[in-house]
Amino acid sequence: MRIVVAEDLYLLRDGMVRLIEAYGHEVVATATTGPETLGALLTWRPDVSIVDVRMPPTQSDEGLRAALAARRELPGLPVLILSQHVEQLYARELLADGAGGIGYFLKESVFDADQFIDAMERVADGGTAMDPAVIAKLLSSGSSNRRLEQLTEREHSVLGLMAEGLSNQAIGQRLFLSESAISKYTTSMFGKLGISDDENNNRRVLAVLAYLNKT
């Protein structure tokens, strides 16, 4: 895969590039500022990019804004956002276009290299992958909508794991259930959330969106 890495801290950028290359992917460009990131994303159109939220010149959310701007130009451009902290607010902004291909993780998720690369590949395939910390925050916040309240507890946990970006098979492994059982849950869940078949490609993304847009 062709990958762009945008990160202003040298040590992290270097480590990330080495990790990605160790897994046999190609880093085609690196960026260290917001404008540079936007430029790299638009010129290279990478299979997936890894973008830090906070970058020069303003040291605010430059990276996030660059990623959002790039996705406005090229809808569905897969982007994996890495940050020292995760905010539901940012997760919603990233998912708002409903196009998928979005990942949002804490920086320390690279500690588990296998899982990290796995998540990156899923994002490259147009999937959605959220850090467990985002999901945990969602579960603890009080707001909920009527459609979500219809879900059973089991369906809730399946949806939570889906939001983390896990495949049906992986969800089955976590919950000690067969893959077919999981797909039964997901089908009933999609029905309850009112997500129809013709949106098949993005059903998982839409489910996660419904999950995030609880209010």
Partner: peptide
């Protein structure tokens, strides 16, 4: 960090999202 990155209003929005209360 969100206060630094986005300013007061978005930071309060983020806070509201994390709060166990239903907050508008």
């Amino acid at each position: 960090p969100v206060l630094n990155e986005r300013g007061l209003i978005d930071a309060v929005r983020a806070l509201a999202l994390d709060s166990p209360l239903e907050t508008a």
